[in-house]
Nucleic acid binder design. Structure first.
Length: 565
RNA sequence: CGGGGCGUGGCGCAGUCUGGUAGCGCGCUUGCUUUGGGAGCAAGAUGUCGGAGGUUCAAAUCCUCUCGCCCCGACCA
């Protein structure tokens, strides 16, 4: 490809709409343009990257035995009503009516359609297992799209669905996909980690997420460097080893006017924040609960929900009604309400908490003596340094971007939709199902997030829009440069190298800056100076300086570099 | 959905408080010079100031209502 016949519209200035680096660079490098919130046009340069990501995924999915198909983006409401997701999905599911007033959705995933297909076609165990996948446009009406294509409303996802005669075979395929995803993300040149995950709204049992590691990631991942333990912090179990030491202090009420936060109280009383307990007031149905956490810990709402059921935070009025006290000074002592203590809190002694009287806290509080032994549960997010749940070391926390997710759905959809096959004994059974997603367009953003420098994007070779760029200096003026550039271009393209020849009549600085910005991994510069000495100059995107290579061997040199990557 | 902010040529912004009929940089067009890291000079083109209504002799500026977008929190590939 030659730049004179290709659409490149790089920008020097940073667009105001973009906050994170990948979004900025994607706009500046003319990979994407926004049409509306969370909805983007993929420009020719960006689409090349998407296609390369898709290519790697397609190759590995096919190699793993999955079969590509394509299901409709627009789907009728009926199967969604059958599965129950028409009600369960909520406003994120984009719905509309056709001219006959019939309900439709734009697919956010395709469990319903693929299950409908399976129940019609996979009537016998002899047809099993079967794994169908597609690389398709999805739409989710996100409450808050952000970071460009990282969390767009419209996006491209690879979604695969497998059907099995029994659970053992589903588990085999689940491991197969775990391995396949590992290969895919490795080939894409990403630094990533597979983590145990909550199964969330899709339901089912086993589940892993694949996260690209990046500080800008929206997810927090807890992992143990001493073992292979890794889990989303939403899920990671907070351990509390040890026993409660006997209390030494007497209970006393201390004035803490204006100090409503644990940090402020700890500072005022000159005690460690870890000696304080905070009480979070929540309502489950109409029941008021106090959830107790150590002052330096945060509530994990998913865990709390598993303990007391769906809840919301109590209002100031409800707190007044239950405890006769303002928020900021509430605590469990003498409170006639349900109390659930985090495991760690249950092991504390001589601690500080609210006194249920405005302007006062209690110090030297001890379980049993000052208040009854509480209900104990895991309520908090893990923090760095917590013991790993597998007992093999201490947890660290990093941030990640979720780019893949695999689930064991079991029979959730097959039972809801009556999708059954006949087994060898002639008995009707619901399919055991798995589903497997990869965020294709999100990967492009994640790869940039992980690979960039002040000059721009540094694409991993597998997904770069072009593998090599040729930058001729003064091509329009110098016949020698033009001739050398055209010859090298021809030689590389004829050998299947994805080459971009920058033949624009621009100053060298512009060409260099653009090629760096759009992240082409290998660059060959041809100038009269070098040509006079019989040399071309080669530079990899990450290199500081170029190196001279004899013109006669530059093509084979580049091809060797490509093969080495 | 709650909280904060922003809508002025293709892009980034000033002007708004204190009404007087729109400006800067980048980009774009043409010419000359320049040519190994986003050139210089000259001449140009491009705006219903997000939209609607109102106040006023006069509105980008004041008032009302709307629409859109971005950022921070609870969900997902």
């Amino acid at each position: 490809m030659k730049t004179s016949r290709f659409f490149i519209a790089t920008q020097k200035e940073v667009p105001a709409e973009a906050e994170i680096v990948s979004h900025r660079l994607m706009l500046r490098a003319s990979l994407i343009r926004r049409l509306s919130a969370g909805v983007y046009t993929w420009l020719p340069l960006g689409l090349r990257i998407v296609r390369k990501v898709e290519g790697v995924i397609r190759e590995e999915m096919n190699r793993a035995g999955a079969m590509e198909l394509s299901m409709p983006v627009v789907q009728p409401a009926e199967p969604w009503q059958e599965s129950g997701r028409w009600q369960a999905y909520g406003p994120e599911l984009l719905r509309f009516k056709d001219r006959h007033e019939r309900d439709f959705v734009i697919q956010p995933t395709s469990e319903e359609v693929v299950t409908d297909l399976a129940r019609g076609e996979l009537k016998s165990y002899r047809r099993l297992p079967a794994h169908f996948y597609q690389i398709q446009t999805k739409f989710r009406d996100e409450r808050r799209p952000r970071f460009g294509v990282m969390r767009g409303r419209e996006f491209v996802m690879k979604d695969g669905y497998s059907f099995h005669a029994d659970y053992e075979d589903l588990q085999r395929e689940y491991r197969n996909m775990h391995d396949t995803y590992t290969r895919i993300f490795t080939r894409l040149g990403l630094r990533f980690r597979a983590v145990a995950a909550d199964t969330g709204a899709i339901g089912g049992t086993g589940s892993h997420e694949f996260h690209v590691l990046a500080d800008s990631g929206e997810d927090a991942i807890a992992f143990c460097p001493q073992s292979d333990y890794a889990a989303n912090v939403e899920l990671a179990e907070a351990m509390a080893p040890g026993t409660r030491s006997a209390g030494k202090e007497t209970l006393q009420k201390v004035p803490t006017p204006g100090k409503t936060k644990c940090e402020d109280v700890a500072q005022l009383l000159k005690v460690d924040l870890k000696k304080t307990v905070k009480a979070v007031a929540v309502m489950h149905d109409d029941a008021f609960h106090l959830l107790l956490l150590r002052g330096d810990h945060d509530l994990n709402e998913i865990k709390a929900q598993k303990v007391i059921g769906a809840f919301r935070f109590a209002t100031e009025g409800e707190i007044q009604a239950a405890l006769k006290c303002k928020a900021g000074y509430i605590g469990p002592v003498g409170a006639n309400v349900k109390v659930v203590a985090d495991r760690r809190v249950a092991l504390m002694s001589d601690f500080v908490c609210g006194a249920n009287e405005e302007g006062f806290h209690l110090a030297g509080v001890n379980w049993g003596r000052d208040l009854p032994e509480p209900q104990v549960a895991d309520l908090r997010n893990v923090v760095p340094g917590d013991p790993s749940p597998d007992g093999k070391g201490k947890l660290e926390i990093v941030r990640g971007i979720e780019v893949g997710h695999i689930f064991q759905l079991r029979t959730k959809y097959s039972e809801a939709m009556g999708a059954k096959f006949l087994d060898a004994a002639g008995a009707e059974k619901p399919f055991e199902m798995g589903c497997y997603g990869i965020g294709v367009t999100r990967i492009v953003a994640a790869a940039i997030e992980q690979n960039h420098d002040p000059r721009g994007i540094i694409f991993p070779a597998q997904i770069a829009p072009f593998e090599v760029c040729i930058v001729p200096i003064g091509m329009q003026k110098s016949p020698a440069v033009r001739e050398a550039a055209e010859r090298l271009y021809k030689e590389l393209t004829q050998n299947g190298v994805d080459t971009l020849l920058d033949d624009r009549d621009e100053r060298p600085g512009v060409l260099f800056a653009d090629m760096d910005l759009i992240g082409i991994p290998h660059r060959v510069v041809l100038g009269e100076r070098g040509l006079a000495a019989g040399n071309a100059e080669y530079k990899a995107r990450r290199d500081e300086k170029g190196t001279d290579v004899p013109l006669a061997s530059i093509a084979s040199f580049v091809r060797e570099r490509l093969a080495a990557a």
